[in-house]
Amino acid sequence: MPYNPTLVQPMKDEVTRLGVKELTSVTEVDAALGDPRGTTFVFVNSVCGCAAGAARPALAKALQHPVLPNEMYTVFAGQDVDAVARARSYCSEFQPSSPSFVLFRDGEVVHFIHRHQVEGQSPERIAANLTAAFDKYCTISV
């Protein structure tokens, strides 16, 4: 059963206010992830305070970086269940994990940060992991 929308809305707002577009339906996910061109970032948000409590501030720090993916999306685990399942289908070789961060380049997963890589980490350390991936995969090679 999904969470009470009132409970999760502040956690969603914490991400969407950063300019990350929320996907709440299968149609929206397919429209966002169906075109594999360029770099696309997906944050699987979640209620869990142990990990998501650090993941969201980490994302905020990482998105201040000068190099960013072309597109940035978020889905909310345990709330927008169909959208999350669809988003996970685009990286099905990876086990479900929330919170988690996924970076696609031309439709291929090039960087995946699992929950276990978030647990107990500082937002600064998680952000450094993210920005290193942005630097590695989101710059155009000439």
Binding site: E93, Q95, P96, S97, F112, H114, H116, Q117, G120, Q121
Partner: peptide, 27 residues
């Protein structure tokens, strides 16, 4: 497991404490 995540085989597993040799973070 570290790269692809934990493949969930059971919702809950209870392990007798007297058989545990160690517990550490996966990370």
């Amino acid at each position: 497991t570290a790269k692809y995540g934990v493949k969930r085989l059971s919702a809950v597993i209870e392990i007798p404490t007297d058989s545990v040799q160690g517990i550490e973070r996966l990370h």
